[in-house]
Nucleic acid binder design. Sequence first.
DNA 1: CCAAAACCATGTTATTAAGCACAAAGGTAC
DNA 2: GTACCTTTGTGCTTAATAACATGGTTTTGG
Lengths: 239, 239
Amino acid sequence: MVLEHFMVKKELTEAEIAESIPDLWQPLTQQQRELLAQNFTIQKYKKNETIYCEGETPENLMCLLNGKVKIYKDGVGGRSQIIRVIKDKEYFAYRAYFAEENFVTAAAAFEPCTMCLIPMPVIVQLIMENTELAMFFIKQLSKDLGISDERTVNLTQKHIRGRLAESLLFLKDTYGVEEDQCTLSIYLSREDLANLSNMTTSNAIRTLSNFAAEKLIIIDGRKIKLIDEEKLKKISKIG
Amino acid sequence: MVLEHFMVKKELTEAEIAESIPDLWQPLTQQQRELLAQNFTIQKYKKNETIYCEGETPENLMCLLNGKVKIYKDGVGGRSQIIRVIKDKEYFAYRAYFAEENFVTAAAAFEPCTMCLIPMPVIVQLIMENTELAMFFIKQLSKDLGISDERTVNLTQKHIRGRLAESLLFLKDTYGVEEDQCTLSIYLSREDLANLSNMTTSNAIRTLSNFAAEKLIIIDGRKIKLIDEEKLKKISKIG
DNA sequence: CCAAAACCATGTTATTAAGCACAAAGGTAC
DNA sequence: GTACCTTTGTGCTTAATAACATGGTTTTGG
């Protein structure tokens, strides 16, 4: 599947760039900002399009400007596991470069996405020149590692209901809700929900139906309303 | 359980320090080395002693000089999960400080251990002054994050035999073997082996016995000899 | 619009792993 | 040495989850 991207090396104003990637931009000197602006590319992806694959060599840091992205890993027997999800203004695709590895995960767009790309060598040069930027990445990686360790335990020790409840709450935290304050803003397939919660698609469907029967949620196709969040938290906590 | 440590702020020679923590030492200027040497403490822990607990506030970077350490997390229902293990010359206990969190894991000594402690504020100061050191931590965190992501999928998707086989091979890779080239250098309880492989102690015992019956390993108490490593790799791979 | 494909739902069965009970072996303290 | 506690080993039972089968429903693409 070969797909065309809009690959735009457009002359964005510095103000536009600054707003897109404030965490990266703010610590930089004027000279460093110019270097960054010269190496700043915008790229768009369609819904469900693959962004990168396991085994590929990382080249660019990516920052999601808008849309929703999943980072996942294909495990044994065709089962896929969603490792984390990316939302607006989050950076990704840089870990493997820093570790001097190829990607161990893949990334795909849940929805149409716009992101900006910056070549990793430029990022490394900026880190070398700018201590504050280095600390930004150290902090980001440290947080992600903590989350990953936490996730390992949650996915392995909690039971199905606990894992699904946790995923629903996680999706609310990450992508938020619509105007009614309870409909999740992301509409996932049952399969993605299963891959996020480490279970088979059948079990995601079944457990979701059970939650609906227990009036914890209301489901309408892919639209999910969280009704009894307290109860969901309890289910998530006890596993 | 309150225990006394040997807390030695001894005047180690610079050569001794350089040998203990080469990755940290090598990039530093003479002035930075002096700062580090002034803030360098040696501490010893007994077998099975707790090094830090979940929820505590991190204060020091630790480098294991000799011994073996487990980083683990207590999950639901008293089950414990070993997240990673530390060997000679590896750094740990710094992630939470960088992330500005309390520890989300705990650490304990598998065996009698000696380590050195360096206050995290000193480390941060050195990182701010020394780009090469910053890159060292970025790389280390990036590698650990990749390992953690990999581990999440292995622990969730592989079956019991695959997970145990993987743990045995992992222990060989990490801590090595004795002179006979096949006896694992680390003698773990069945419970630790279970916690490393995400299974109950009963299942670790049972599966280990099965491996022995299949002549893949020889067990003699806690001593484990890997006999048919190829077969173990195959079991680990197919899950 | 229609056909094909993908997705959702539900029931049934099979497999896997956990839980429990108990006995034997090994270590440790006194 | 003896008593006690921890660890290891085994068998059996039960619970949890995956796998499979089938039918309905929605979405997609021409």
